[in-house]
């Protein structure tokens, strides 16, 4: 499989990356907890936390990618996204998870769990959205 060029990878998932929470606290990406996102969203005037439940994970015609169907928010809006298999999502109460944890660890040095149907992921939405 073609290895993704480092330039294409978002730098903030690299182990050791410094993340600033809404209250100004600095944490490493691998040390983030569910409450860090919840408390940051509570402080934010524009953003709020949504919970997005994984309903399906299907192969994609794009190499090294999958199509994930989520049920998003209170209204369970159906949303499909295509992501690289190593893309990490933050699962409530579990932490970083991806469709191919070994590849995530290989590319980001970020250890994570296997993303499964039924997992509830942290996502964001604007407070102004209906």
């Amino acid at each position: 499989a073609s290895s993704t060029s480092p330039a294409a990878l978002p730098p903030f998932f690299m182990r050791g990356s410094i993340i600033q929470l809404a209250d100004g606290e600095l944490k490493r990406v691998e040390d983030l907890r569910t409450e860090d996102f919840i408390q940051s969203a509570e402080i934010s005037s524009e953003l709020k936390i949504d919970s997005s439940t994984v309903e399906r994970i299907d192969c994609s015609p794009t190499p090294n990618a999958v199509v994930i169907q989520f049920a998003v928010g209170e209204l369970k809006a159906q949303v499909c996204v295509e992501v690289l298999v190593e893309y990490p999502f933050f699962v409530f109460g579990q932490g970083w998870s991806s469709c191919c944890p070994d590849r995530t660890t290989q590319l980001f040095e970020l250890s994570c769990a296997k993303l499964c149907v039924g997992d509830v992921c942290v996502s964001l939405t604007l407070r102004s959205l209906r």
Binding site: P10, P11, F12, F13, S17, I18, I19, Q20, L21, A22, L26, V29, L32, D36, F37, S40, S44, L47, D50, S52, F70, V72, G73, A77, V79, V81, F89, F90, C121, V122, S123, L124, T125, L126, S128, L129, R130
Partner: peptide
Amino acid sequence: NVEPRSVPVFPWHSLVPFLAPTQTD
């Protein structure tokens, strides 16, 4: 002498996706 080097700091909201279908007020 060790030159001080800047370390990038990323905002918390860049790590989680916006998935909600968009329709603003």
